[in-house]
Amino acid sequence: MRSIGLFIDGLMQYNFLQTALITSILVGIMSGIIGSFIILRGMSLMGDAISHAVLPGVAVAYMLGINILLGASLFGILAALLIGLVTLKSKLKNDTAIGIVFSAFFALGFILISLAESATNLHHILFGNVLAVSDNDLITTAIVLAIVLIFVVVFYKELLITSFDNTFAQAYGLKTQLMHYALMLVLTLVTVTALQTVGIILIVAMLITPAATAYLLTNRLSHMMIVAAIFSVVSSVIGLYMSYTFNWASGPAIVLTAAVFFSLAFLFSPKQGIIFKKKIN
């Protein structure tokens, strides 16, 4: 347990570690909250797709020196629209449309990033390097968290009903498509911030693993979002500690921690855990 002491010492001493810790916590909160809607709407694949599809946006932002959020949002929304278009205008199923669009975007992003290699580090974009987060990035992250919280508070009813019973929402005249794309836009923003802590490849895990863990343990949407955010934050902090101590990439460390929590809930959840169910049967 000496390493925990070292981690805490490090936190006291190093500004970069403090920034990393705060970023991890903020990203944890937002991904737990938005992730809850992603899994309830059966959009895990879409979450994965959007997170991959922002890569060209990141590259373009680096190249042109514009804000990374702007570049990424543009490509994230473009991908969501294209997926919607292909699904609507062809007989293909949604998952096929998602697969085509996101792999193409990712491939494009990969090539663009290689062209801009000098300015940035592909490995860090793909797998996250929370220890290299700048103060500026931290401010961006805080702004995105504020947007996420406002979005969810203002549209709580609308998010709930479109996730739960979309036909009912449509039948009373709610603009359900608009809601979908608004959520996709917010998801894109979350993706770009989560990119710093876990990297593009593993963002989907931050979105769905803590939310899925919470899903097994709660039976109200509001509780699920809170519990998901807590699991997400705890996983992020533990992951950061391991990343610092063992010099692992932060993304895999955080994601593995989240997966351990999920496994525990999967086995022991009083409501749906498989061990508990066995006992009853």
Binding site: L40, G42, S163, F164, D165, N166, F168, R220, L221
Partner: peptide, 10 residues
């Protein structure tokens, strides 16, 4: 009803 019966709601 095409709603999600596994949704966390009572």
């Amino acid at each position: 009803a095409a709603l999600d019966l596994t949704f966390p709601i009572n």
